[in-house]
Design a protein around this nucleic acid. Structure first.
Lengths: 112, 112
DNA sequence: TTGACGCATGCCTATATCGGTATACGATAT
DNA sequence: ATATCGTATACCGATATAGGCATGCGTCAA
């Protein structure tokens, strides 16, 4: 078979470092494509493509403003990710019996 | 050029649905590869490959147990993701001036 | 109308997976 | 030593990107 589709999946959309950078920039407010491209050191077509992916998963919205097209953040789409990750929160705070046991075990089983 | 490397990047590791499923299962405790593969309806080699990725980014740990190899969750690696997403939390709760303005604008600009 | 500017797309290449199958490896049991 | 079980890997095929370049389209100014 092949790879899983990336678009239309928020988890995949934010898996790209450059797309994360775009989202961070957009926290500061709407920005035109060219400005984003410039600030992130990427080509205009490159920025447009990433923005397209972000738009398709609903993380950004765009509106026309004269010749420009302003992109703005719509962070609501990140909620599912936040919730999914939140389901693991207790696991990184507690010092697990299981984890402890594991660590103890490592000292002996360690293949190095 | 090409695609960005997926391994050694937690964001990419959890971008794969099956890998997320594995992580969820592991919240219930350590599991041998075969059991994971079976419960998730994937082949054993398939499970092993995903586990390898998860191991490389530090989300799971393994230890030998006789003939078996038990995989356990190490959720600490998810913290960076949680924190990054958390940086957007205020943006999905507030009803933005910017977002409001945008919505208003949509009603007119809407290209449909 | 003609230009210039801002963006989106199409096309093309290289590459990183994902999945499946076959197989090699390590450990336990006979 | 040999067979068997549990896993990890090698190999292969199909495909979805990420990026770069060229180009098309829409908007505003002269």
């Amino acid at each position: 078979m092949a790879r899983a589709a990336t678009t239309s999946d928020v988890f995949n959309a934010i898996a790209e470092p450059q797309r994360r950078d775009i989202l961070v920039l957009l926290r500061g407010g709407e920005r035109p494509v060219t400005e984003l491209a410039q600030q992130l050191g990427m080509t205009q077509p490159g920025a447009s493509k990433h923005l397209r992916v972000l738009r398709e998963v609903g993380l950004v919205r765009d509106r026309k403003a004269g010749k420009q097209r302003l992109y703005g953040l719509d962070a609501r789409g990140m909620r599912p990710v936040h919730e999914w990750i939140g389901g693991f929160e207790q696991f990184w705070n507690e010092s697990f019996d299981r984890l402890d046991a594991y660590v103890q075990d490592l000292k002996q089983t360690q293949e190095k």
